[in-house]
């Protein structure tokens, strides 16, 4: 059960630190191309709890990391839209035909045709709620605490730097071996990030 929760959290990019408070290795790569190749190689080495950080989405990175298509957001958007449509239909039918029937120029109390605009608007509105809330939920955001923020270099991940993070929770993780592998892959800077706030370069 515990590992299942850990795996679920790892899916959204939240990795647990290990018993020694080691959160993981943070390797910096010079450019998006090097990062993409490194991610492919790390995946091929059998690592699963790893993530890349870049200032913009890198095309092909999902395949390189073996993440597949992101279906979740689409599903939540779809159900949001269905909810909006049904809510709008029921709202207009119940208020106009059941709770407060009002004769307006002899028109039927309820008809689908004049209800379409509001059904459409609420479908879009609720689908948008589904897309945004679903995206944040599936990303585990908001996430105020993240041990990676202890690294000063990591601030560049939103500017012009490209990082690969291998989490200590990965079965394959070993400080020396993983660091050696990252160096081989062309990382030009390596840091060991710990949950107690220390960063060893």
């Amino acid at each position: 059960m515990f590992t299942l929760i850990q795996d679920l959290k790892a899916q959204v990019g939240i990795f647990e630190s290990d018993a020694d408070q080691v959160h993981g290795l943070l390797a910096e790569f010079p450019d998006p191309g090097a990062l993409l190749h490194a991610a492919e190689a790390v995946r091929a080495e059998g690592y699963r709890h790893f993530d890349t950080h870049s200032p913009f989405p890198i095309h092909g990175m999902d395949e390189a990391m073996g993440l597949g298509n992101a279906v979740g957001v689409g599903v939540l958007t779809f159900f949001g839209g269905i909810t909006g449509c049904v809510v709008a239909y029921l709202l207009q039918w119940w208020t106009a035909a059941v709770d407060y029937p009002l004769n307006i120029s002899g028109k039927p109390f309820f008809a689908v045709e004049p209800s379409v605009p509001i059904m459409f608007e609420l479908t879009v509105l609720f689908a948008a709620f589904g897309a945004v809330a679903g995206m944040f939920a599936l990303n585990g955001l908001p996430r105020p605490y993240n041990p990676l923020f202890y690294s000063d270099r990591f601030r560049g991940a939103t500017d012009d730097r490209f990082f690969l993070h291998i989490a200590a929770s990965d079965d394959e993780f070993d400080v020396e071996d993983s660091a050696a592998m990252l160096q081989r892959l062309g990382a030009h800077h390596l840091e060991l990030v710990k949950d107690d706030g220390t960063v060893d370069a």
Binding site: T52, S54, A70, A131, M135
Partner: peptide, 27 residues
Amino acid sequence: LGWTGSNRHWRNYEKAYLLLAGLATPL
């Protein structure tokens, strides 16, 4: 919201952005 430019996040983010664009167009 604690954004780190993680690719696991970009993946859902781009999908949500595309869907929002698709929703905003007919809207």
